[in-house]
């Protein structure tokens, strides 16, 4: 265990019960059977899903920043989240979202398609530059097709549903989403963790990493699969949630020895904590309708990103 892990686990142990109580209506868990129902069937799955979503995005962000050796890298840049979003939008467009499983399944198919494209273009060489360009191309293509789907939406209701879904939220999610996403995110974080030693070697540049025995193709496959499973599963159940993968590794990095391998698990835990806290916050904000989680995190993330850029301009990053 690295140093931040026990601290983050302790913070989660405090945050989870608090988030169960928090909401537009604060629930007293001992007030009767209704309270138990609200906690067990509404708030607990939502809290667990927030943990899963945050863990996936935080872990993927740490791995991506390690792979690209760039503290401004975000897993959303590489086409998997836009691919998943395209799959989900297609399900909404064709009206297939009536089943709780169909929309996330379509999103997972979209994420799988994006992963396959990435692997097809960049998998043979294993080169980082090619992978980045392939990711940007996939992201751009999926984004364009999603925009096309919105502009050609069959009716105003479908368009509104698509736009709302794209903004990302944990509203009205339950145990089915947890059971769908949790194993995939866990497997994905496991694969990313397995890439840790190779990511450490990349600290010294691609040539040195290869001279140390790093297999670039194996690393690329671990990252495509790991990021695909985590970000794909997260997007499938929660929509697009940005900035978590960018912000969290930054917050955690100073607490570690900065080796990418030592950042993945703490980033997953810190991501879980951040999304749980943000989701609790959007629930208690006194607004007419609940603020979408994706919007709230973007509102938090944009100034953070600006701060990073300013820090980078001063040469302090």
């Amino acid at each position: 265990m690295t140093r931040p892990v026990p601290v983050l686990l302790a913070a989660l142990a405090i945050a989870v019960p608090l988030s169960l109580l928090a909401g537009r209506v604060w629930v007293d868990p001992w007030s009767g059977p209704n309270a138990a129902l609200i906690l067990g069937e509404l708030r607990l799955p939502r809290a667990v899903l927030a943990l899963v979503v945050g863990a996936g995005l935080g872990g993927a962000g740490a791995a991506m920043q390690g792979y690209l050796r760039n503290p401004l890298a975000d897993p959303g840049l590489f086409g998997i989240a836009p691919g998943a979003a395209l799959g989900a939008v297609a399900a909404l467009w064709f009206g297939h979202a009536v089943s709780a499983w169909l929309l996330p399944l379509c999103a997972l198919i979209g994420a799988g398609g994006a992963m396959a494209l990435l692997a097809l273009i960049a998998g043979r060489s294993g080169g980082i530059a090619l992978f980045t360009l392939a990711g940007l191309m996939v992201a751009s293509l999926a984004g364009a097709l999603t925009a096309l789907a919105i502009s050609l939406a069959p009716n105003a209701f479908a368009m509104e549903t698509i736009v709302m879904w794209l903004n990302g939220a944990l509203t009205d999610r339950g145990w089915p989403e947890v059971w769908l996403a949790a194993p995939l995110v866990l497997a994905g974080v496991g694969l990313l963790r397995a890439a840790g030693p190779a990511l450490d070697a990349l600290t010294l540049g691609e040539a040195v990493a290869r001279s140390l025995g790093m297999n670039p193709r194996r690393l690329l496959w671990l990252l495509v699969l790991g990021t695909g499973l985590t970000v794909g599963a997260v997007t499938a159940v929660a929509g697009i949630i940005g900035f978590v993968g960018l912000i969290v590794p930054h917050l955690v990095r100073p607490l570690t020895d900065q080796r990418p391998s030592q950042l993945i698990v703490p980033s997953a835990l810190a991501g879980a904590l951040l999304v749980l806290a943000a989701d609790s916050l959007v629930r208690v904000l006194p607004l007419m309708t609940e603020l979408r989680l994706g919007i709230a995190l973007s509102l938090l993330g944009a100034p953070f990103f600006l701060g990073l850029l300013l820090k980078m301009r001063r040469g302090a990053l």
């Binding site: 050796r69 030693p197 450490d200 070697a201 990349l202 600290t203 010294l204 540049g205 040195v208 140390l212 025995g213 790093m214 990095r253 020895d257 900065q258 080796r259 990418p260």
Partner: peptide
């Protein structure tokens, strides 16, 4: 090229990879 600000000992340990 050293992408991250790792401690010297950790960097030298990479040689054992």
């Amino acid at each position: 090229e050293i992408a991250w600000d790792v401690p010297v000992r950790r960097l030298v340990e990479l040689g054992r990879m």
